[in-house]
Write a protein that binds this DNA or RNA. Structure first.
Length: 413
DNA sequence: AAGACGTGGCT
DNA sequence: TAGCCAAGTCT
């Protein structure tokens, strides 16, 4: 098989010329061959956003970022809180912090130009092995070995690499370096990623239409499903906590504060919440309310993170004002601008959807619809309360069975 | 160097 | 449903 290695780039690039995905941060293969290079700012921004994140999720964020900040200098001059708020919902928020730090270095330390080699790029915050190679090859034509999850899959199949990840990374990188062409290295990297994303997919790869099936050892052996070999996953533990949503009686504004930078969701806005502990009960929640108010249990929000599951008990209270604690009021029509991560959007949505305690006493008990109600950020920046169960949206009916929770009323002290 | 770090879509 | 997975980086 090895005597055919030199054919891989040619066959793959021929396929890419016809089948390249049209993405907002890309220039097409035709433009690239005409000597046009993509804007390094857009390449960098897209690569940071795409870390562990799907293309579909990234697209609207990318469009909003480049519309708001047209250059790396613009982004460097933005307020960090604005950058964080614009990032809200994309996840892995240290990326946004590093993004802004990187923009400042490039704008004020490198004259607004990204350094053009992988080695130099890798010194910048948020740019590691993959991203440095991707930017260097796509924006600057350096034949740096680009290795992401797609390419790991493609290469372990091409060469039947049986060593489990991540130990196999060194061998994979060496292999990618050996087949990366000096002509069109950026298109080669993007072609490999397109192949992994559309044909050489994890479960059932479409080998019949693969442009490099002829060079694939796993395809020959028929064991392509075995690669890449990965270690078993650890079970994810559960944590619990409570969140407190104060609503200003006058206008329905929500009291928010900022989470400390180095923590989970660091630097993002939140409705004040307790620590998220491995084990806790109502007593802990009560003692941890941020201030005294008529807190009423409004339901539970469940949220899955990478390394733990979280169940947050949501309490709401209607108040005149708040004193003695750090934070700010977010008017109801401006909640979308506050930079609430998805977990906290769920929390606020749950609290707003909960019926006021007084009304509740007058009405017959009604089943809670915790998971069907959500806050949705509209593209224009508005923020709407969506009730899937009532609105007749044509989502497949979700199996919903939720134990009715009694509203516990208590106040601090 | 293994674990922290988000979220949404798909099976 | 519950798990798996996605253009990784940092410590």
């Amino acid at each position: 098989m090895s005597f055919e290695h030199h054919q891989i780039p040619a066959d793959l690039l021929a396929w890419y010329d016809l089948s390249a995905r049209d993405l907002p941060w890309r220039i097409g293969p035709a433009a690239r061959k005409a000597g046009i290079r993509p804007d390094a700012y857009r390449v960098w921004l897209s690569e940071i956003m795409l870390q562990q994140t799907t293309v579909a999720a990234v697209k609207p964020y990318f469009e909003r970022f480049v519309a708001r900040w047209r250059s790396v200098e613009d982004l460097a001059d933005a307020e960090t809180d604005d950058v964080m708020a614009e990032w809200a919902g994309l996840g892995y928020y240290s990326r946004a912090r590093n993004l802004h730090a990187c923009a400042k270095i490039v704008a004020h330390g490198h004259g607004g130009r990204f350094p053009p080699t992988a080695a130099l790029l890798k010194a910048l915050p948020g740019i590691g092995d993959y991203t440095s190679a991707a930017i260097a090859s796509i924006a600057f034509d350096e034949p740096a070995p680009v290795v992401d999850g797609n390419i790991e899959r493609v290469v372990t199949r091409l060469y039947r690499i049986k060593a489990p990840l991540p130990a196999a990374k060194t061998a994979i990188r060496r292999t990618v370096a050996a087949i990366t062409p000096t002509e069109r290295p950026g298109d080669f990297a993007q072609a490999m990623m397109d192949l992994g994303a559309t044909i050489c997919v994890p479960r059932t790869p479409s080998c019949l239409i693969c442009p490099i099936a002829a060079h694939c050892a796993a395809r020959s052996a028929g064991d392509q499903a075995l690669y890449p070999v990965k270690p078993p996953k650890r079970a994810v533990p559960s944590r619990v906590g409570a969140a407190f949503v104060a609503l200003r009686r006058a206008d329905g504004a929500v009291w928010l504060r900022r989470r400390p930078a180095p923590s989970m969701l660091g630097g993002m806005a939140e409705a004040p919440s307790t620590d998220w502990s491995a084990r806790a009960d109502g007593e802990t929640h009560a003692a941890s309310a941020p201030f005294t108010a008529g807190w009423v249990h409004a339901g539970t929000v469940e949220h899955g993170f990478t390394h733990f599951k979280l169940a947050l008990e949501v309490y709401r209270a209607e108040v005149e004002t708040v004193t003695g604690v750090e934070g700010w009021w977010a008017p109801p029509d401006r909640i979308a601008e506050q930079g609430l991560p998805t977990l906290m959007r769920k929390v606020v949505a749950r609290a707003i959807a909960a019926e006021p305690a007084l009304a509740k006493e007058k009405r017959p008990a009604r089943k809670q619809r915790t998971a069907s109600i959500r806050l949705e950020a509209e593209p224009e920046g508005s923020f709407s309360l969506v009730d899937d169960a009532a609105a007749g949206t044509r989502r497949p009916p979700r199996p919903r069975r939720r134990t009715r929770r009694t509203s516990a009323r208590w106040s601090k002290g």
